[in-house]
Amino acid sequence: TGEEYIAVGDSTAQQVGDLTFKKGEILLVIEKKPDGWWIAKDAKGNEGLVPRTYLEPYS
């Protein structure tokens, strides 16, 4: 379980453990880390770190 967020920009994984996503994708945020990198899952079930500045709450 988690909260749904929509990507407001494209982000390409810079290192192992990062999640690549495109603008408009809905991501499920699993954990919000205080350093600004959140753990999220995409629609295909891929999981990784995403920069919170690229996400907005999805409603």
Rank of each mutant, 00 (worst) to 15 (best):
T1C: 13
T1Q: 13
T1I: 14
T1Y: 13
G2S: 09
G2L: 11
G2I: 10
G2A: 11
G2W: 14
G2K: 07
E3Q: 11
E3P: 05
E3H: 08
E3K: 07
E4Y: 15
E4Q: 14
Y5A: 02
Y5G: 00
Y5T: 01
I6D: 01
I6S: 03
I6C: 06
A7Y: 09
V8S: 06
V8R: 08
V8K: 09
V8P: 03
G9A: 15
G9L: 15
G9K: 15
G9V: 15
D10Q: 05
D10S: 09
D10A: 07
D10L: 02
D10I: 03
S11C: 15
S11V: 15
S11Y: 15
S11K: 14
S11A: 10
T12G: 09
T12Y: 13
T12P: 13
T12L: 11
T12W: 12
T12H: 12
A13L: 07
A13S: 14
A13Q: 08
A13E: 09
Q14P: 09
Q15M: 12
Q15T: 11
Q15E: 10
V16Q: 11
V16G: 09
V16M: 11
V16C: 10
V16I: 12
V16Y: 10
G17L: 05
G17R: 05
D18K: 14
L19S: 02
L19Y: 02
T20W: 08
T20L: 08
F21Q: 01
F21Y: 05
F21I: 07
K22Q: 08
K22E: 05
K22I: 07
K22H: 08
K22A: 07
K22T: 07
K23P: 03
K23C: 08
K23E: 06
K23F: 06
K23T: 08
K23S: 06
K23D: 03
K23A: 09
G24A: 03
G24E: 02
G24Q: 02
E25Q: 11
E25V: 04
E25M: 08
I26T: 04
I26W: 05
I26Y: 04
I26E: 01
L27C: 02
L27R: 00
L27T: 00
L27G: 00
L27P: 00
L28V: 10
L28N: 06
L28Q: 07
L28M: 10
L28R: 08
L28W: 14
V29N: 00
V29K: 00
V29D: 00
V29C: 01
V29R: 00
I30G: 02
I30S: 04
I30H: 03
I30D: 00
I30V: 08
I30K: 05
E31W: 11
E31I: 10
E31G: 08
E31V: 12
E31C: 12
K32R: 07
K32S: 03
K32F: 06
K33R: 14
K33T: 09
K33Y: 09
K33C: 14
K33I: 06
P34V: 09
P34F: 09
P34D: 13
P34Y: 09
D35N: 11
D35K: 03
G36W: 03
G36T: 03
W37D: 06
W37G: 06
W38N: 00
W38E: 00
I39H: 07
I39W: 13
I39C: 04
I39M: 09
I39Q: 05
I39F: 10
A40W: 02
A40E: 00
K41I: 14
K41W: 06
D42G: 03
D42W: 02
D42V: 02
A43Y: 09
A43T: 11
A43K: 10
A43S: 13
A43E: 09
K44R: 12
K44G: 09
K44S: 12
K44D: 12
K44P: 02
G45Q: 03
G45V: 00
G45S: 03
G45I: 01
E47M: 14
E47G: 04
E47I: 15
E47R: 09
E47N: 05
E47K: 11
E47A: 09
G48P: 01
G48K: 02
G48L: 04
G48E: 01
G48S: 02
L49K: 12
L49G: 06
L49A: 08
V50F: 01
V50G: 01
V50K: 00
P51M: 13
P51K: 13
P51L: 14
P51F: 15
P51A: 11
R52M: 15
R52S: 15
R52H: 15
R52N: 14
R52F: 14
R52T: 11
T53W: 15
T53S: 13
T53I: 13
T53D: 15
T53P: 08
Y54M: 15
Y54H: 13
Y54W: 09
Y54I: 11
L55A: 01
L55Y: 01
L55T: 01
E56A: 11
E56C: 13
P57W: 06
P57F: 07
P57A: 08
Y58L: 13
Y58A: 09
Y58N: 07
Y58V: 11
Y58F: 10
Y58E: 04
S59Y: 13
S59V: 13
